[in-house]
Write a protein that binds this DNA or RNA. Structure first.
Length: 320
RNA sequence: GGGUCGGUAGCUCAGUCGGUAGAGCACUGGACUGAAAAUCCAGGUGUCGGCAGUUCGAUUCUGCCCUGACCCA
């Protein structure tokens, strides 16, 4: 009985996800307007302050009308990771749950959602010193040397990770070299199997053609709204283009443009291409998630009915 | 009107000393546990401008035509 009660006490989340530019923001504004509640953003870029236009953050007026969490929480030169996201979102969700609010988790960063809902393996965290050393070793001796080292200490990882995937090779070595245990062993103990929440996952899907047209429109709008000036402003603030959040699909092309490589239409083309590729990567990721119930973004009514059923079922359950 | 250099994948171009072609990007599919808007993998794609000629065989050589850029009139 005690276990059952604890079951029912788990926070309930309405997750809204899907590729970039499908209309998640517009939809959740309408839903939250109707059902109430607050929004927890699951977007790895909107966490950064000052990156507004290029990350398509919800407008100030929207954020004043409906409380948004995990937007503008770190500076562009601060580290932030899926683990940070999970920890912070966990606290926010607990507190919203205690006050009985409807919790909307909205975003397209697949790893963040998976980590939030399933938990993250309790691995060694990122260690900037180890990372710096590994990067230097790679520059000096080449990636293949690092890969060979990984193959010796953790053959299973080496079998799973491609020999060109520098990020994952270095991460696996980082875990091994700072903890003495392989990443494989630690991940096996875990495997995203925690179930901290009761979840309704709603995915927004659009036809490729439609989605790509929306992406192009959004890119034009970003440029019109001053994406280039925003980027120059970041530089004036002292943020270098090598920073992680600036080496991304919108800002990276802007820096190229600022160096005189290409004109404005060329910039729009580049961002559009990158964004389309990103949207496809997101589709690939979400396709695997069998929990997601897919809807057309135009089917606001159907989605609202589904959300209503989910919330009703939950509130009628046993209360703590 | 004459000359020069071009016309090869959706785009930019490479190439074939004659045996029907290839890179990058685009496009499509996939992977993903503290960098995830990151990182990585795989896959095609073609009347080689047109018509003739030479040749066993022409995208490659020759002629003519069409077409683009530039130069000279």
């Amino acid at each position: 009985m005690k276990a059952r009660a604890a079951e029912e006490e788990r926070p309930r989340l309405v997750v809204l996800t899907g590729p970039t530019a499908t209309g998640k923001t517009d939809l959740v504004i309408r839903l939250a307007g109707f059902f109430g509640g607050e929004i927890v953003s699951a977007d790895s870029m909107q966490v950064y302050r000052y990156l507004d236009i290029g990350t398509a953050k919800p407008s100030r007026s929207v954020r004043e009308a409906i409380p948004h969490h995990l937007i503008d929480v770190v500076d562009p030169d601060e580290p932030f990771s899926a683990a940070d996201f999970t920890a912070r979102a966990g606290e926010i969700i607990e507190s919203l749950h205690r006050s009985g609010k409807v919790i909307w988790v909205v975003g397209g960063t697949g790893l963040y959602l998976r980590a939030l809902l399933g938990g993250l393996a309790s691995l060694t965290g990122a260690d900037p010193r180890v990372r710096k050393r590994l990067r230097e070793e790679m520059a000096r001796h080449g990636l293949s040397l690092l890969f060979e080292r990984l193959a010796r200490v953790d053959p299973e990882s080496a079998g799973r990770i491609h020999k060109n995937d520098a990020v994952r090779i270095m991460r696996a070595l980082e875990v091994y070299e700072s903890s003495g245990r392989t990443i494989t062993a630690q991940q096996k103990e875990h495997g995203f199997r925690q179930r901290r929440y009761r979840v309704l996952s709603i995915g927004l899907a659009r036809e490729r053609k439609d989605l790509f047209a929306r992406i192009d429109r959004r890119v034009e709008e970003m440029i019109r709204e001053g994406l280039v000036a925003e980027t120059e402003g970041l530089v004036e603030r002292g943020y270098d283009e090598s920073l992680k959040p600036l080496q991304t699909l919108t800002y990276r092309p802007v820096f190229r443009y600022l160096r005189g490589e290409g004109d404005l239409p060329g910039l729009a083309g580049a961002i559009g291409r990158e964004t389309r590729l990103y949207a496809k990567r997101q589709e690939t990721w979400f396709k695997k998630d069998r929990q997601i119930e897919w809807y057309s973004p135009d089917d606001g009514e159907g989605i609202a009915r589904r959300v209503d059923a989910f919330l009703r079922r939950e509130t009628n359950g046993v209360r703590g």
